[in-house]
Design a protein around this nucleic acid. Structure first.
Lengths: 151, 151
DNA sequence: TATTGTTATACTCTATAACTATA
DNA sequence: TATAGTTATAGAGTATAACAATA
């Protein structure tokens, strides 16, 4: 037996079930995160882009759309929301005038830092209640799944 | 002025990082799943509701909205999509005529079974490439995170 | 009055198609 | 022609507010 069954999801962990388990858990967590989101705040998509710009530095629209695996037109609109809100700005690329470099504003950088801890308060509390071993398990799974998401 | 930040935050178990790591990994996986979705197919939300009805049996709108942690009005619209597509039907509750019991149709049950394996083909392939130990780690993390999502 | 469910409306996020500007 | 980016429009999924029907 590879894994013990989760009592309530009864038939779920069968031979082919791991993908379904991951997908279900991810979907439920994602929706849970979204349900905690106060109205008027940046959505997770926009915040993820802002955080990416903050951590990696200026990027073009094409780079951002490829990193986020969305169509360029989709990323353009997400960036419209960020720039309209004053969290990012467009700057011309001096070497290629077709390109636009997006970068965070001071407000955007502040928000990226602040929101990172604030928005995760609930989740951090839940995770803190796990045993150290379980925390390591979750951390390791995040590495593995993050790599899969980017593969 | 470059990112004084961790270029690759996979050290993970720092003082505040686990919640952020989980959130980031979940968000990137969720968006990756969504990007794999062929046009014209049921979205993950609708499919999750359909699967829930298929596994648990008939449920009222209130029960479904609480299970999915969405507003009743939101669930009503998701159910409108499922019923319009012929995958679920409304049936009156004989004991309380305010209530509506939603149940899968034959087509809905078939779809719930078929899509489950088909849609996870890509993810299953990625997971199959992991070592057995890593697979157990992911499975265990899904249990832990699933419980948090439902807490 | 309280509960159950619905419709109306708006916002985020996504897509495709059609467009402009630059290389 | 090819590439980078934008706008127009549509659909899924979410929310709140206002409503009807039943308890």
């Amino acid at each position: 037996m590879e894994t013990e069954a989760t009592a309530e999801n009864s038939g779920v962990l069968d031979e082919t079930g791991l993908g379904a388990e991951v997908r279900s858990a991810v979907g439920r967590l994602y929706r849970r995160f979204r349900s905690e989101l106060p109205a008027g705040e940046l959505g997770d998509t926009a915040l993820e882009v802002l955080t990416y710009l903050h951590k990696r530095g200026p990027r073009t629209l094409t780079e951002l759309s490829e990193a986020g695996r969305v169509a360029p037109a989709s990323m353009s609109q997400t960036l419209n929301r960020l720039t309209s809100a004053g969290y990012a700005i467009r700057t011309p690329d001096p070497n290629d005038r077709r390109k636009v470099l997006f970068r965070t504003t001071t407000e955007g950088a502040t928000l990226a830092r602040a929101t990172r801890s604030q928005r995760n308060a609930w989740l951090d509390a839940q995770l803190a209640a796990l045993s150290p071993e379980d925390q390591r398990t979750v951390a390791r799974a995040c590495e593995l799944l993050g790599a899969i998401a980017d593969s």
